[in-house]
Amino acid sequence: MRIALAATCIADAMFPQAPRAVVTLLERLGHEVVFPAGQACCGQMHVNTGYLADAVPVVQNHVRTFAPVTDGEWDAVVVPSGSCTGSIRHQQSMVLERAGLHSEARAAAAVAELTYELSELLVDVLGVTDVGAWFPHRVTYHPTCHSLRMLGVGDKPERLLRAVEGLELAPLAEAEGCCGFGGTFSLKNAETSAAMLDDKVATVVDTGAEVLTAGDWSCLMHIGGGLSRGGTGVRPMHLAEILASTRESPVVPGRHGSGRSGATTEVAR
């Protein structure tokens, strides 16, 4: 398959190891990955903060950039984020519709139909749960709210993780509880966000896991920041980074996150 990667703005700028791992993983599975250079952001931050007018050009840019998928240029769009996929699927056409951009709204809906969160792409579209990964670490998985409730990815991420050789999956108590990030909520209601974070950090630590994984770097940035502040030693890693790891090219949980120097997910050539 020819798959277009929507890297997400936050991972592009802050956590490039996640989209790089997606490239590694999909190429290892025999697919071609394309990175359309015009992309920037899905517009979720603007929408969820209430700046719908300011979201319009951001959404327009996303739709314009990925529109070729509807003409068969690519077979699918993959997004290593549940909440960005959710925004693409459930918000973009609404934003354009409200702005009176009816035909662009239809185009957005068409692009969204071919857009998948990573675990959805792997399990539903590509039909794989065992991606041939090797990751000999104790891991716990936090189902992020939007992947869980907006997308309904269900247990797909866990199925993928269970198929990883050497990986020990530790159940997380109160797993479905929100970590308290909520985008700008973490700034506008900083104390409440921190209280939620404290509880999440405590349950993660209780698992005894070495690595916390999730399908969204935004939530991982939040929980990871708490894990680091608490000196817990638990490393946050995106699901893609674990799935990209093999015996030949292992990904080692970095001291902070997963290898800030970029050494961890070198693409196999």
């Binding site: 890297a7 991972a11 592009d12 700028a13 802050m14 956590f15 490039p16 190891q17 989209p19 790089r20 990175f35 250079a37 900083a190 966000s193 921190a194 974070l197 940035m221 939040h222 990871g224 920041g225 708490g226 680091s228 502040r229 902070h256 996150g257 800030r260 120097s261 970029g262």
Partner: peptide, 14 residues
């Protein structure tokens, strides 16, 4: 105030 910020990377994805 409540959490660390992970160090940004040297190089963006793109």
């Amino acid at each position: 105030r409540s959490r660390d910020l992970m160090e940004p990377p040297k190089q963006t994805f793109r």
